[in-house]
């Protein structure tokens, strides 16, 4: 995992052997550039790259490539997310070229939540290709400098290719193989689903290490601080593929009045400390949902600062 494939800062940080730290920012439900810039500013200097989500939970927002371009303007490296739900292969290739042209150097390839969850459940979904095929496509565009059909690309997009992994979805035994498939398709790095069940994640990582997968790909462990008991219960019951152990909810309940959020941050910091020591984990992906203003504090307390210079 030595040669640089893109001009990505995140790639440089990882290849230099630093413990990476990425953040996340959802584009606005509108053209509120000011608000987007405020959220991005909270992350600047505190993370190596910021995931710019793509109509997450199937709710319409400013396009991920446009918000990524704004992040570039603001001096923050975006991790441009792309889901397979909303675009066919033509639009995907064209948006990859567009996002790259506007300065994106990382890309995260995702299936995308089904539109039934979102605010336009009447929509037709696309799924022309799936997330594995999207990874392979981004790699082909970068390494072979060709479109999917084999035609030459005039200046190829050199992106650091990411993918997601959910060790908590079923069937558990297959999840490490699906990770292996994503790596063989071309994933350079992986960001996992939010981790709450540490025991299961330790087991998953052991399987990944034993299979040699962590020698071929950087794995960033997903962390989302729980803000309240209500949020934890919602995640446990309503969010597909999320595994929030009852013990964790009890711990939040046990916090004194008004202190559940602080307890949630403490849990996140303990997790980050463990991930720093966990074999095969190359960094943390912090998804502080609508909590961008707390990222600096979490980064500081988890001793993730200062970030390595670009």
């Amino acid at each position: 995992m030595s040669e640089n494939k893109s001009g990505s800062n995140l790639e440089r940080v990882l290849r230099a052997g630093h413990f990476a730290f990425t953040g996340e920012c959802g584009p606005p439900k509108g053209a509120n550039v000011g608000h987007l810039k405020e959220k991005i500013a909270f992350l600047k200097g505190n993370v190596d790259a910021v995931n710019i989500t793509d109509n997450q939970t199937a709710v319409v927002r400013m396009s991920s490539w446009a918000a990524s371009a704004i992040a570039v303007q603001e001096g923050v490296e975006p991790n441009f997310q792309m889901v397979c739900r909303d675009r066919n292969r033509l639009a995907m290739m064209s948006d990859i070229l567009g996002a790259y042209s506007l300065g994106a150097r990382n890309m995260l390839c995702l299936s995308g939540d089904h539109q039934r969850f979102g605010n336009h459940p009447e929509a037709k979904n696309v799924y022309d290709i799936d997330s594995l095929q999207l990874i392979a496509l981004a790699k082909k565009m970068r390494d072979e400098e060709q479109f999917m059909n084999g035609e030459a690309i005039d200046v190829a997009p050199r992106l650091f290719i990411g993918a997601a992994c959910n060790p908590f979805a079923d069937p558990f035994e297959f999840r490490v193989y699906r990770l292996a498939k994503k790596i063989s398709a071309g994933a350079d790095f992986i960001q996992t689903q939010c981790i709450y069940n540490m025991e299961k994640f330790r087991l998953f990582m052991k399987m990944a290490v034993d299979m040699g997968l962590t020698e071929k790909c950087f794995i960033l462990a997903g962390v989302t601080p729980l803000k309240s008991v209500g949020m934890a219960q919602y995640m446990a019951r309503q969010v597909p593929g999320m595994d929030v152990p009852p013990g964790l909810i009890d711990r939040l309940k046990g916090a004194s009045k008004g202190k559940a959020a602080e307890e949630g941050i403490k849990i996140a910091i303990e997790q980050i400390e463990e991930f720093k020591e966990m074999k095969g984990v190359s960094g943390v992906h912090l998804m502080a949902i609508e909590w961008e203003h707390r990222v600096a504090e979490i980064a500081e307390r988890a001793q993730m600062l200062p970030r390595p210079p670009i």
């Binding site: 397979c84 739900r85 299936s111 995308g112 939540d113 089904h114 039934r116 969850f117 979904n125 799924y127 799936d130 997330s131 594995l132 095929q133 997601a164 992994c165 959910n166 979805a169 079923d170 069937p171 297959f174 699906r178 498939k181 689903q193 597909p240 593929g241």
Partner: peptide, 21 residues
Amino acid sequence: CSKSLMNGPCGGSANGLCEIS
């Protein structure tokens, strides 16, 4: 498959059921 995935299952598969319902 609700997403017609050729390389599933996606991260929404839980207890043998699809994320949509």
